[in-house]
């Protein structure tokens, strides 16, 4: 072992754990300040919940208000919507790549739709499908399939010409080139689209659940608000932020794993 190794390990530990520990400490400090502000009456408890009360409410939400079941309902909807978005987006992305005329005609439109406030279409689906899971999942599919298609098309366009030339040198058929070269090379970038699709689907589903007071996590926040259960409402919001953080972390890790350095 060289002298430099322990020093490098320390630096690595600082880089890995330093910001995380500092982040947790900042969060604890802010929580403590809020607790004191509420306890001293400076912050109105009818507007802001004390963190201790919020954490206790979280337990109550799980035991009495079925927060666990609500999470599973939202998760099931988000996963179904993402799966359907992949079933639509992946072939659509390939089609836009494969047929130049279609790609040239519709890629710009898809990009414009990606930037459009599609979630505002939900009243339209409420009218057509009704106030049920069909509407929430449909909105998830619509918002999720666009990034999947765009990033799949982009990923196939970005496949290195050198790899394609190697395939040609080995006399691969078009099908072999697609399955052995294009698909594996496109996976990392296409996964970015799937990651975005899942996040968009999840965000939109929770948002619509809140708006129509139906389904999983979004409904819990709405119910707590209309019940004027302030600690419960903050606890539900806190739980949704935790879920977002968890999703983001896991998906980024998978994306990093798929992307060779």
């Amino acid at each position: 072992m060289t002298h430099a190794e322990p020093h490098q390990k320390q630096r690595l530990a600082f880089v890995l754990w330093g910001p995380r520990t500092a982040g947790l400490l900042v969060l604890l400090f802010l929580g403590l300040i809020l607790e004191v502000l509420v306890a001293s009456g400076i912050a109105d408890p009818s507007i802001v919940a004390a963190p201790s009360e919020m954490l206790m409410s979280l337990e109550r939400l799980f035991t009495k208000d079925n927060l666990g079941a609500a999470f599973l309902i939202t998760l099931a909807q988000a996963l179904s919507a993402t799966l359907l978005a992949m079933l639509i987006g992946l072939p659509l992305g390939w089609t836009l790549f494969r047929y130049e005329v279609l790609g040239r005609a519709y890629r710009g439109w898809l990009a414009a739709m990606f930037a459009a406030p599609l979630v505002l279409l939900y009243p339209l689906f409420l009218v057509i499908i009704g106030r049920n899971y069909g509407t929430t999942i449909t909105m998830g599919v619509i918002t999720g399939s666009i990034p999947v298609a765009l990033y799949t098309c982009e990923a196939l366009h970005k496949v290195s010409p050198t790899l394609l030339k190697v395939g040609a040198a080995f006399n691969l058929t078009a099908k072999q080139t697609f399955t052995l070269i294009q698909v594996p090379a496109a996976v990392p970038d296409a996964f970015t689209g799937i990651r975005l699709g899942l996040i968009y689907a999840l965000v939109n589903i929770i948002g619509i659940e809140f708006l129509i007071d139906f389904g999983g996590l979004g409904r819990v926040v709405s119910t707590m608000f209309f019940r004027y259960d302030i600690p419960g409402m903050y606890a539900a919001i806190f739980f949704i932020i935790l879920i977002s953080l968890l999703f983001l972390t896991v998906l980024k890790k998978v994306e990093r794993w798929l992307r060779p350095v």
Partner: peptide, 23 residues
């Protein structure tokens, strides 16, 4: 330190904060 918090809050549906701002 701030990036994970900002990124996770950025991907949270903002509409769920409506009750807080309404209060």
């Amino acid at each position: 330190v701030a990036d994970p918090f900002l990124s996770s809050l950025a991907t949270t549906p903002k509409i769920i904060f409506l009750p807080v701002v309404m209060l």
